[in-house]
């Protein structure tokens, strides 16, 4: 009897233990990440730091960076563009694809009220569109950063880049430029009460310049200055207003746009460099370069250039003479 009781009592005990072991064994997913179905490794992503632009290494061997291809004969009208030419292709497509800035006040910026992109660079592009289509509005904008200017031309994504684009020998190696359509110079923007008069006075201070620009390269020539790169010029203005940098350096046109947005900022000093602006065009499209140079030629001659200058850059003072076109680049 007792023995039976004992055995009888043990059986359920064993059964319970077994049942418990079964339930215990039926577990899965030891941690939250597996419940979330996530790989732990995916959390760690590395961000690629953009390489700092290398300083131009061969200015000595460079021929004239402002020399472009000479226009051939008189400018053809929109209806008799040479067949097979790049211009005819663009006309066929229906719009001129252009790489521009949307946040550089005066040169190329989106008007928050109308939503339109406008400025001196944009106005020049409208003239090119007018010459190809007879309609200045046949533009398809691609908003790009300074650092993207060469890439979009090399890949053929855009026809023309008009984005405060300084003509340099180094850039001529991979793309082509129109003749010079604006002459800018690098200056410095500081706070209204700053005693800084020229870039040398900024020794030991933080100065912002956009990535992938000649401005940033030139800043490297002043070793005492801490260069702070930003993605765009406007991002520099944000850093300036947040007191994360003491000054911004850039082309006088761009800085004038900043001063217009911030009454506590002023542009100082003489230009420390010559920044000849050209329209960037793909290296293969020499016919388009010649055509655009013809358009610019007309703009200089018929006063359009001066009108546009006064409209967009009048804050800089009375319109100077348009820069002279230099030709003679062998194609």
């Amino acid at each position: 009897m007792i023995a039976r009781t004992t055995r009888g009592a043990r059986l359920p005990l064993v059964a319970t233990a077994l049942a418990a072991a079964l339930v215990l064994g039926a577990c899965s997913g030891p941690d939250g990440a597996s419940d979330l179905r996530r790989d732990v490794a995916e959390e760690t992503t590395t961000e690629e730091e953009p390489a700092p632009p290398a300083a131009s290494s061969q200015p000595a061997t460079c021929e004239d960076p402002v020399a472009s291809y000479e226009p051939e004969g008189s400018l053809p009208g929109p209806d008799d563009l040479p067949s097979g030419s790049t211009m005819a292709e663009i006309r066929e497509r229906g719009s001129l694809v252009v790489g521009v800035s949307a946040d550089t006040l005066l040169m190329g910026s989106r008007n928050p009220l109308s939503g339109e992109i406008e400025g001196f660079d944009i106005a020049v592009l409208h003239e090119v569109a007018r010459a190809i289509f007879g309609d200045p509005d046949r533009l398809q904008f691609r908003v790009i950063t300074s650092g993207q200017r060469l890439d979009v031309l090399e890949s053929g994504e855009v026809d023309v880049v008009a984005r405060a684009f300084t003509m340099t020998c180094e850039r001529w190696e991979t793309i082509a430029f129109s003749s010079e359509y604006y002459h800018a110079g690098q200056k410095v923007l500081v706070t209204r009460d700053s005693t800084v008069e020229r870039i040398e006075d900024l020794e030991g201070q933080r100065v912002c310049a956009p990535e992938g620009t000649t401005t940033l390269e030139r800043l490297g020539e002043f070793p005492g200055i801490e260069a702070v790169p930003a993605q765009t010029h406007t991002a520099c203005l944000v850093l300036f207003q947040q007191a994360q940098v003491e000054a911004i350096t850039g082309d006088d046109t761009i800085l004038a746009g900043f001063a217009a947005q911030d009454p506590y900022a002023k542009v100082v000093g003489e230009a420390i460099s010559d920044e000849p602006y050209g329209l960037g065009i793909g290296a293969d499209n020499v016919d388009l370069v010649r055509f655009v140079n013809g358009v610019l030629e007309e703009m200089r001659d018929d006063g359009t250039w001066t009108d546009l200058y006064e409209r967009w850059l009048g804050v800089l003072g009375p319109a100077p003479e348009p820069p002279n076109a230099v030709y003679g680049r062998p194609s």
Binding site: A102, D103, T104, R110, T232, T234, A235, V238, F258, Q261
Partner: peptide, 13 residues
């Protein structure tokens, strides 16, 4: 509100 394009850079940030 003042029509300054720097607004979009602030939005970006």
């Amino acid at each position: 509100r003042q029509g300054f394009p720097v607004g979009s850079a602030y939005l970006d940030q």
